[in-house]
Nucleic acid binder design. Structure first.
Length: 118
DNA sequence: ATTCTGACAGCAA
DNA sequence: TTTGCTGCCAGAA
């Protein structure tokens, strides 16, 4: 069942699916962090779970912009989980980001906080 | 049921 | 400032 992108994510579904839902809501050209998603889901401190969930995101159908999720410093900590080591950076650059030394320079300006935007 | 692990975050040195 | 250790919680083995 598809969820409306404008509606907040409920906790009816499993944790992983909630992570996927939020991730799918990240607008193109914006970026967020694992911790921000964790806080929005009400499980602050479980940022590691967000990463774990995204690790299985490839298994999910549909497009999940996991490349728009980086750590709190704007570091591409999950680049290794994209087929090629440069895939994540490529995807971000395609959306207008500047990545230097695995770090997104526009992290602060284009930061998208679900607990604020949603 | 128990133990290990992780695409993090916070804080102490 | 950078480095390292600890807490976190939900899956996987």
């Amino acid at each position: 069942m598809e969820r409306r992108s404008s509606a907040p994510v409920t906790d009816n579904e499993g944790f992983f699916n909630r992570v996927y839902d939020v991730t799918r809501m990240i607008p193109r050209g914006r970026i967020t962090s694992y911790g921000a998603i964790a806080r929005y889901l009400g499980t602050a401190g479980s940022a590691r779970m967000v990463g774990w969930a995204l690790n299985s995101s490839h298994h999910s159908h549909g497009f999940i912009p996991a490349h728009r999720v980086v750590n709190r410093n704007g570091l591409l900590t999950g680049k290794r989980h994209f087929g090629n080591s440069s895939t994540m950076q490529q995807l971000l650059e395609n959306e207008g980001f500047t990545v230097t030394d695995d770090k997104v320079l526009e992290f602060r300006e284009r930061f998208w906080d679900p607990s604020v935007e949603l």
